Simulated scan of single mutants.
Amino acid sequence: MPRQTRRRSYDQYCAAARALDAVGDRWTLLVVRELLAGPRRYTDLHADLPGVSTDVLASRLKDMERDGLATRRKLPPPSAATVYELTVRGRQLLPVLTALAGWGAPELAERRPTDAVRAHWFAIPLVRALAGPGDRSGVVEVRLDEGVFHVRLGGGGPDYGDGPATRPDACLTLDADTCVALGRGELTLADGVRTGQITVEGDTAFLGVMSTSVPSGGTGSAGGG
């Protein structure tokens, strides 16, 4: 019988310690962050986790499969690509990432020259900011200079995803600093629209703001498929 490598553990009968046994290794929660956006290929994960080695990423994905946090499946033809996706238990880490992002938000006061950035990294705090105090439901496409992502309010699938939405109910155009301010609660959506820091298009009534789109301008990637 082949010898099994003993899993590293804090060996403490404590819920927090047990959780850290599964997700406390470097890069694991950032892999979760990427997979919360939906199924991803290994190459996509590696591209959006700058700094991780191929060996470490492969090891983390293997650990996540072992711990029941992620699964691997092959897409049907013509793609036939293999993707990783979170299990139900893995998706239950969204509130953990949301709380962690809220706690770490003050550290975004200044962007370091060495900082990598991807547009969808702003999604987790923004989901909470756009959800607001009411029961909002809809798909919002968010356009930054750094890229485009979308968030889904009110359930019904992944809470956010990289790239344009297929049929967004509303589109927001803003810069990264404004997005950070929204996520940190330093700016409301209504105030951002009123001051011109945020442009909104589409059916924005569910967000509690009026559209500021220019009818003749077009929206590019906002169209549905």
Rank of each mutant, 00 (worst) to 15 (best):
R3M: 10
R8H: 04
S9E: 05
A16E: 09
R18Y: 00
A19Y: 02
L20C: 02
D21I: 05
G24I: 00
R33S: 04
L36W: 12
P39F: 02
Y42P: 04
D48M: 06
L49V: 11
L49S: 09
P50G: 08
G51T: 07
S53W: 06
T54F: 09
A58V: 03
S59E: 11
L61V: 00
D63I: 02
M64K: 03
M64G: 00
D67K: 01
D67C: 00
G68K: 03
L69I: 07
R72C: 04
K74Y: 01
Y84L: 08
E85K: 05
R91T: 06
Q92H: 11
A99S: 09
A101D: 15
A101Y: 14
G104L: 15
R111F: 14
R112G: 08
A116I: 02
A123G: 10
P125F: 15
L130G: 13
G132N: 03
R136F: 01
R136H: 01
R143Y: 04
L144T: 07
D145N: 15
G147C: 10
Y160I: 07
D162F: 02
T166K: 04
T166M: 03
R167Q: 09
D169H: 09
A170K: 12
T173F: 12
L174H: 10
D175I: 06
A176I: 05
A176T: 13
D177S: 13
T188Y: 14
V193N: 03
T195A: 14
T195G: 10
I198W: 08
V209F: 05
V214A: 12
G217K: 09
G218E: 05
G224H: 15
